[in-house]
Design a protein around this nucleic acid. Structure first.
Lengths: 153, 153
DNA sequence: TATTGTTATACTCTATAACTATA
DNA sequence: TATAGTTATAGAGTATAACAATA
């Protein structure tokens, strides 16, 4: 039996990552990156990256939402949202209308084009979800979502 | 009953993110970021960021592992590992020794200082894990890890 | 010809400070 | 005085191409 501790020049056949695999954070990050990779591919046809998708989804489901509300909901810093919103506006997916009660704020509204795009994009996202669920039973997928939300919500 | 669809200037009281919360990728990312945030704070005393920690952990548990093996295990691109390894070397946490069979490769070995640091750091990580588990029962934490691994492994 | 480690570099993501207009 | 949106900018993270040394 060779001791890897006493031989500084020994080589490694199979890398042991068992300790890291006990950590929820490590596993959550690896799983998230794996899913986001698939997401990026499938959403490319809509010209939406994950953040764009999240922002558009919130705007469609919350017409009139402000930038500040978006930032708080999605954990985005205000300066980083600006160019994102500008880009969605330039693509004709959203409209910026004056806020009814607050002259400082701007309400973000989906255009018909934006609504139509997100109807498809959300369907694709749900389909991808069922693909990820190919590795999980529907029951397991639901359990997973519930447990993850206990952590960050 | 006000219809938010017909009033483009309506405001939003509470932001509805229910659709996003059905997506495993969204939840996994949010949970990972929440845990990594805590991790960053607790690991600051060791001067270790999450990637440094992962790399050191793999080196300690696999003395003699090569850069390429590390990259494959942790999903890091080789050019991005270089400065990381250099920094750990400069801190005296690892040693780079010639590989026994392959003249191109370099074996990465923990120094005693590196081992001692990681003994503490891994204990802290496990403790943090139990804190995250404060939101979950030990059983739920185990279930969560198992389900996440089904996705990316 | 393929692989290891490396350099240089570019692009994206994330973070901070400071400004303006309005509350 | 505080907040919404914005600008400028810095730093961290991630990506590709190309090279020398070795297999």
């Amino acid at each position: 039996m060779r001791s890897s501790l006493k031989n500084p020049s020994s080589s490694v056949e199979k890398v042991d990552t068992r300790f890291l695999e006990t950590l929820i954070g490590y596993n959550a990050r690896r799983a998230a990156l794996a899913i986001i990779g698939e997401f990026l591919e499938k959403m490319a046809v809509y010209g939406l990256k994950p953040v764009d998708f999240s922002v558009m989804s919130v705007i469609v489901h919350n017409p009139g939402v402000t930038s500040r509300q978006l930032c708080a909901s999605l954990n985005i810093l205000p300066p980083n949202l600006v160019s994102l919103i500008h880009s969605l506006d330039a693509r004709g997916l959203i409209e910026r209308l004056p806020h009814p009660h607050d002259g400082r704020a701007v309400g973000l509204h989906p255009t018909e084009k934006g609504r139509a795009l997100m109807l498809q994009a959300e369907a694709t996202a749900s389909e991808l979800e069922r693909n990820v669920g190919g590795k999980l039973t529907p029951n397991q997928a639901q359990t997973l979502v519930t447990l993850l939300q206990k952590i960050y919500l």
